[in-house]
Write a protein that binds this DNA or RNA. Structure first.
Lengths: 127, 127
DNA sequence: CGGTATCCACCAAGATACTG
DNA sequence: CAGTATCTTGGTGGATACCG
């Protein structure tokens, strides 16, 4: 693996290594908006406008940018139906589904920990 | 839950909601440096300098900032041994361990997908 | 509807220097 | 060793306007 290190050189991919493509991918999928887009698409395909409404606070520009980044990493597919008015669907690839599942688990964990989080933050800020 | 919505109001925490504290926590743990710090601490406790070396590319400033953020959310503990020369250990809390485990799974997935990622990116950039 | 283009403000983040 | 302080800058991201 790691085209980064030339043919045959590769031993293990490493997210900690700046030059490893897994780190680039990791930064893409953990991106502020990209992560939420993946979470949304984990629920099924979405259109651009639907996504914009689902991911609270995202601008058109940032959404567009996040979608391009995820498409580039092969995590989602873009389907333009070529109709008028336009209709474009975004859906996860197999790899995208895997990633989204992990992010979902992470989100669920944090959603369930909200009381703990609030307590911890309050305690920290008090001091 | 959700002190965000007042007493008794809380139904479900939602990462998609800007005001939900799970979203703030989600953004903290998926932060560019914080996520790598969590990954590192998932391997065991680390000292400041060790962490700096482990997480390739992080500056002292960014590391310090990430550590404060994670401590604030109750994901890690800071132990100052009060010795000279100074020794400070960082270790995950129970919640931090849970989060780190999820991030590890995500990183493993991406590390294993490096060939696919490289192919996808090359294809996208060609067009 | 589904974007792109442009301008601009702010802050993330690197470099450097310094301290307990 | 383990940070904090300060300065500077590049990029992130919001607002607005416009196009197929």
């Amino acid at each position: 693996m790691a085209a980064d290190e030339g043919p045959g050189a590769a031993l293990v991919a490493d997210v900690f290594a700046r030059a490893c493509s897994s780190r680039a991918a990791f930064e893409t999928v953990t991106g502020r908006w990209a992560s939420l887009v993946l979470l949304a698409l984990g629920e099924g395909p979405y259109r651009f406008g639907e996504l914009r409404r689902r991911v609270e606070g995202v601008s058109e520009k940032m959404l567009s940018q996040a979608l391009h980044g995820l498409e580039r990493e092969g995590l989602l597919t873009r389907t333009d139906h070529g109709t008028v008015p336009p209709r474009v669907d975004y859906a996860l690839t197999a790899l995208g589904e895997d990633v989204a599942r992990r992010l979902r688990e992470l989100a669920d964990l944090l959603q369930g920990a909200v009381p703990d989080l609030n307590r911890a933050r309050a305690a920290y800020d008090r001091d």
